[in-house]
Amino acid sequence: MNDVLTMEQIEFQAQADQQPIVQHIDIALRPQEFVALTGPSGSGKSTLLSMAGALLQPTSGALSINQTDVLRLNSQEKTKLRLQDIGFIFQSAHLLPYLKTADQLRYVGKLAGLTKQTMDQRIQRLLHMLGLEHRQHHFPRHLSGGEQQRVAIARAWMNDPSLILADEPTASLDRERGEQVVQTLRDQVKESNKAAIMVTHDTRLFAYCDRVIYLDNGQIDHVEASVVP
C-alpha cells in the first residue's frame, strides 16, 4: 500500500547561519499506522509536525503526502491539502466558543464544500462514534475537557483526511480521559484506514501506538516498536 506520509532527509533551519532545528529526518507512514513522537522539550517535535502538516516549509529534503509533492505547492494549494487530506488535533481543543458541537463539524464540512446530505450523515456518524450525540446542541463551555477534545477529534475527522496529526492531544486532560481519547484515536486509525502521528510525553500512551519515534536535539535518536496491550 502507498505511504500516506513520506519524509526524506527533512531539515529545517530558522536562520541560515544557525544550527538546524531539525535535520536528517526520515519517516514513512502507511495507512493504519499510529506513531508516537516523543522527546525532550525543545527537541523539535512541534516543528516536525508543522512540516508534516504543510504549515511550515522545510529548508531541504523531500516531503510528500499521498504522493503529492508538498514542497511544490503554493500556499492556496497547501490550504486545500490541509482541508482535505490532513486532520489536526491540538493540545487544547481550540473549539470556536460560539459554535454548538454539530456546527463545529459542519463548518469544516462547509469549507470543504461537502453537500448538505453528506455533511449531515457524517456529523451523525462521527458524533455517534465519539459518544457525543447527546451533546450536539451544546456550546463548548457546557462540555467537559474530555468532551471538548473528542469534538476536536471529530472535527479533525470531518473531511475524511488520510493523515491525522495530534500535538500533545491529552495534555489538558486527566489520565482516564486522556487514555479514552487516545484509544478512540487508535480505533479510528485502524478501522478507517488512516495514518496518525501523536506527539506525547506520556509513556503510558506509547502502548496504544505501533511505533515510538524518539527525537533528541532535532534528530531521530531511535525508533522503538511498541507492544500493543
Partner: peptide, 11 residues
C-alpha cells in the same frame, strides 16, 4: 500565521 496554532498554544 496558521503555524501559531500548533505547538501547544492556548485558545
Amino acid at each position: 500565521d496558521p503555524l501559531k496554532a500548533i505547538g501547544g498554544g492556548q485558545a
